[in-house]
Amino acid sequence: MRIAAILSLPDGNQGEESTSPAKSTPHARLGGLGGTSFARFDILGQSLLDRTLTRIEQIGALSHTVISQGKSTELLPVRSGTPNSFVTAWEKSVAKYVNDGVDLLLLVRVAAYTDIDFAQFLKFHLEVNSPITRLYAGETPLDVALLDASRLRNAEGSYRHKLRALIQQQRRLDYQGYVNPLATPVDFYTLVEDGLRGRCGLHPVGQETRQWFWQGRDAEIDSSAVITGPAFIGEGAQIGACCTIAAGSSIERNCEVDCGTTVEESWVMQDTYIGAALDVRRAIVGHDSLFHLDRNIEVKVGDPDLIGTAPKSAAFFGGLGSLIWGHEAAG
């Protein structure tokens, strides 16, 4: 059985397309402000996109296409009126796989986080023998569907019109596991914390050097720094002298936390520099901004000596902006 996947990413540049076998590259990850989908941000050492791709490969998906959705929020673009660049890119991808003789198309919108077992989903789809199977959590559709590609062959008109006809016959698989909607910055921190505390399947990517503390490759931690688990220090990150990294914190790859700074219950997004002697608590920090989880506000710090881009980072990183702009935060 030949399986291919089409992954759509919220935000980002609409209709922008990349195909397998490459996973999201560091270059793609370091996009411009607002153009970077949050699915490309590292969370506990790996992006949601790369984690999804790894799980898809495990069920034998031969190839995949990643499409940026822009403002569209549909997994199956059947309601869209005038075709936009996302719909055009989606149609093109479906056509490619249908013409290549793929049997099953796995459609995933990398938005909400779930611990879905794709193998179990595939098994269910084959058992019920429906043209489309969708995953639901209660009455809420999750952004995952399996589509029998053979039903789209010899379709007249667009694939989305054909899909609209098939959707009446869709079957549901009820998912009982962990779901995080990733609808607000607070949800993102909740996912980080749940991953650190083992409440979901989002495991830190690094070595557990002692209980509840994971460290990525080439992370440098000064011997005078105090770390209390659960905590994660990502690949290539630097933690300066006399820093305190307290429980519930994730410092992602290539971050630099300067001397004497305390980070507690916070998510420091990749490539971020945090200046000396600061106190970061209950916050998401990225590029030049800080989102305070309790006050529910984003503060542009605007001083690279306080919070900025880490010297190690290869390029400008969109950081917090994409989280905030993608999901309206109450002021």
């Binding site: 002697a277 600061l278 106190d279 916050a283 800080l290 006050r295 506000i297 710090v301 306080l306």
Partner: peptide, 12 residues
């Protein structure tokens, strides 16, 4: 303001 409170806490 909440922004000022956040910045003052950040810098101690």
């Amino acid at each position: 303001s909440p922004e000022a409170a956040t910045l003052l806490e950040l810098t101690r």
